[in-house]
Structures are given as C-alpha cells and as structure tokens.
Deep mutational scan, measured.
Amino acid sequence: FLTKYFNKQPYPTRREIEKLAASLWLWKSDIASHFSNKRKK
C-alpha cells in the first residue's frame, strides 16, 4: 500500500503523513523514513 502511494506521491505533505500513520497504525516517523528511504533508491 505504501509503495503504491509512494509511486503517486513521492513527497507527501505533513497532513498526508498523519493520515497514513493514523490509517495504518504506524508512527509518523516510520512513514516519513519509509518515504525517504524509497526516494534514495
């Protein structure tokens, strides 16, 4: 799911990160680090 979202929006806003974190029961920092790691590849 996160990879699909990343393909659409590689630079999510803070609000989008909060929404993703809430819906996936993850920490915002986990979401942010996932996106930054994907951008590095």
Rank of each mutant, 00 (worst) to 15 (best):
T13S: 10
L20T: 09
K38E: 03
Y11F: 06
A22D: 05
T13A: 12
E16M: 11
L20A: 11
A21E: 03
A32W: 14
L20D: 04
N37D: 07
S33K: 13
S23M: 03
K40D: 05
R14Y: 08
K28E: 02
N37F: 11
P12T: 08
A32M: 13
A32D: 05
P12S: 09
Y11W: 12
L26R: 15
D30H: 08
T13L: 14
P10Q: 15
K28A: 15
K19N: 08
K41R: 09
K8I: 00
I17H: 05
S33C: 10
L26C: 11
S29A: 11
S29F: 02
Y5V: 02
S33L: 07
A21D: 02
Y5N: 02
L2N: 02
R39T: 06
F35P: 05
I17M: 15
P12A: 13
I31N: 07
Q9Y: 02
K28S: 12
L20H: 04
K4P: 00
D30E: 08
K19V: 02
Y11T: 14
S36H: 12
F35T: 05
F6I: 05
W27N: 04
E18G: 08
F6P: 00
L24Y: 01
R15S: 11
L26Y: 07
K41H: 06
L26H: 15
Y11V: 13
I31V: 15
K8N: 03
K38D: 04
F6Y: 04
K19E: 05
W25P: 07
R39I: 11
W25R: 15
K28R: 06
S23E: 09
K38P: 06
A21W: 12
W25C: 08
Q9R: 13
F35R: 06
E18F: 01
D30F: 05
I17F: 06
F35S: 07
S29P: 15
N7V: 00
L20S: 05
P12E: 13
K19Y: 01
I17V: 11
Q9K: 11
L2K: 01
Q9L: 07
T3Y: 01
H34A: 12
S36C: 12
F6A: 05
W27G: 13
N37S: 11
K40P: 04
R15T: 12
R14G: 03
L20E: 00
F35I: 06
S36E: 03
